[in-house]
Design a protein around this nucleic acid. Structure first.
Length: 559
DNA sequence: GTTGTCTGCCC
DNA sequence: ATTCTGC
DNA sequence: GCAGAATGGGCAGACAAC
């Protein structure tokens, strides 16, 4: 049984290696030498996870729980532990444990941690529920860290947080498996798409080799990785740079659903491959009553609509989609609409390698047209712009643009699907505070509190935060500038004199239960630093209200 | 019984 | 989810 | 062009604290 310290050493090496190729090679040679029993957990570990994507279990513990466990184990207060933080939570714990004068119960007499023992202990976190379960989880972590070396503790913490920061994640682990067991990486990627469990893929590659990987296929009721789209902001550029023909579909602002059916049942999975069947009793009923009665897998979106079929904002969808209790009652209050846009499996045939237009034919034959996402082939830019604008008037999110000759690429953001989304007009917002970053942004103020100007009383009213849009050089400059405007600081938040104005693009103004204004930006990102504007020239609270209200010209409002 | 905190997951 | 960066 | 890192708002649910 390989010891966990070997994983820790491997990951330490990977972290400081910048070449991806070399990272992959060292992980590959590690996996190759590993005994079969440890391949499953080791592969998940190097991908930065404890549970596979299809595993519905949760660790139910994060930094707060870890700090409490540390306090129990060593008596260190969370605030004091934070002093050891220098960009990485795992390292904070390691640095603390490495102190010369720290008396740690000797690890000399305990068994060394092995990959499997760490996996087992971490898995145990998922098994507690009910009263006292938080304490119990913290107890496990406390024990694990007490028995671990500082180096091991670092990675136990990183794994708990799902934040390894090695520069290796699932995409490169695929390459590692490919290199370790000498199997074409496309086959590995495909098997992962079908299984959603990279540990299993590695195990199959190790034990059964290429033929085992080739035998992996789609199975009903095992969710497969959904295909993803590349964001674009200009359809003209796309038409110039990519070969068509393209088909255009409305993009719905809802939640992705993957629907699996056979003669007797229907199960539904989310974009991240978790089962959501029980949250959607109405959709299940619909599918079972009107879809064809064969083995099949569909890809689609559910949106919430009012009695006239007008879409509600995304938040309303989530009141249904995230619910596991009182689902029947909720389904009576808020109606969901199903829009199916793809079929991936039919009657023991995988359709993922078929071209889009061919899959559409199967799709249309499999369910009533009203549940199929409309699709139109276009090459004229004016018609495209018109459809884009229609999608807005219908309360939708934009357009999906798909190459009609493309296969369904599992889990990939390839160059076959594109998405074009509506945004708000840009807003000029004032930075009123900023937070220190983590990881590579550790020394910068990288998350900015954004406010509108309340011209009634001269206040600045916060409506969201953003960390997106600036380059590294701009972050550095902005950090210096904001520090020169600092008025106070507490808990990593630096409050500044409202002076810096940034032009911000957002997709929507949402209802906010947290901000005083009752409004918050969705997907806010900085598009320009507006040195030409004074804070009093910023978008006003009044402007924001009116933009907020105008959204309901095309969207339904939940009373 | 109610409110607050934490977590995970949807976008 | 979006954005930037290094390979 | 891909993969990874950094981090947003809000929802429900589970549990803890009052």
């Amino acid at each position: 049984m390989t010891d966990f310290i070997e994983v820790a050493k491997l990951l330490d090496g990977i972290r400081v290696e910048s070449s991806r190729k070399k990272k992959v090679t060292s992980i590959a040679s590690f996996l190759r030498k590993l005994e079969p029993m440890s391949i499953y957990p080791a592969t998940l570990f190097v991908s930065g996870r404890v549970f596979s994507e299809t595993d519905s279990r949760n660790l139910n513990l994060s930094w707060k729980g870890i700090s409490k466990a540390m306090e129990e184990a060593f008596g260190i207060k969370p605030d004091d532990l934070a002093k050891y933080y220098d960009g990485d939570a795992g390292e904070a714990v390691e640095n603390y444990l490495k102190q010369d004068d720290l008396i740690v119960q000797s690890t000399l007499f305990s068994e060394p941690l092995t990959i499997r023992s760490v996996f087992r202990d971490l898995s145990r976190l998922a098994s507690y529920s009910g009263k006292g379960s938080k304490k119990a989880r913290e107890g496990i972590v406390q024990n694990m860290i007490s028995e671990a070396s500082p180096q091991e503790a670092k990675y136990i913490v990183s794994l708990l947080l799902g934040d390894l920061r090695t520069g290796v994640s699932e995409g490169l682990v695929l390459e590692c498996i490919s290199e370790a067991f000498e199997i074409d990486s496309h086959l590995i990627r495909r098997a992962l798409g079908f299984l959603g469990d990279i540990g299993r893929v590695a195990e199959i590659a190790a034990v059964d080799g290429q033929s085992g990987i080739e035998e992996v296929k789609i199975e009903i009721f095992t969710p497969i990785k959904p295909m993803l789209a590349v964001p674009i902001d200009n359809p003209e550029e796309l038409l110039e740079s990519e070969d068509g023909p393209f088909s255009f579909e409305p993009k719905y602002d809802g939640a992705r659903v993957q629907i699996h059916i056979n003669k007797n049942s229907c199960r539904i999975f989310s974009r991240r491959l978790l089962e959501v069947t029980d949250s959607l009793p109405d959709i299940v009923h619909l599918v079972r009553s009107v879809f064809l009665k064969e083995d099949a897998i569909f890809d689609g979106e559910v949106i919430a609509v009012n009695e006239n079929g007008v879409p509600y904002p995304f938040q309303v969808v989530m009141r249904r989609f995230g619910r596991t209790k009182g689902t029947e009652e909720a389904s009576r209050r808020v109606k969901l609409q199903l829009r199916v846009f793809d079929i991936l499996y039919l009657n023991s045939e995988m359709l993922v390698d078929d071209a889009y237009f061919k899959r559409r034919v199967n799709l249309i034959d499999s369910l009533p047209e009203e549940y199929v996402t409309p699709s139109k082939m276009m090459k004229n830019i004016d018609s495209i712009q018109e459809m884009f604008s229609t999608s807005k008037k219908q309360g939708h999110e934009g357009l999906m643009i798909k190459k009609i000759n493309s296969p369904y690429q599992l889990g990939k953001r390839g160059r076959y699907w594109f998405k074009l989304k509506h945004n708000l007009e840009t807003l000029d917002l004032v930075i009123v505070a900023a937070e220190w970053g983590h990881g590579r942004r550790n020394d910068w103020l990288s998350d900015y509190h954004l406010a509108v100007y309340d011209s009634e009383n001269g206040d600045y009213v916060m409506i969201g935060k953003t960390f997106k849009g600036l380059t590294d050089a701009e972050f550095e400059q902005m950090t210096r500038r904001l520090l020169s405007l600092e008025t106070s600081r507490s808990k990593g938040i630096v409050t500044v004199k409202p002076e810096v104005v940034v032009e911000v693009l957002a997709s929507e103004i949402q209802d906010s239960p947290t901000y005083e204004s009752g409004m918050a930006l969705r997907f806010a990102r900085i598009v320009h630093i507006r040195d030409d504007k004074a804070p009093s020239d910023a978008t006003t609270l009044e402007d924001l209200h009116s933009i907020y209200s105008s959204q309901f010209k095309y969207k339904a409002k939940l009373e």
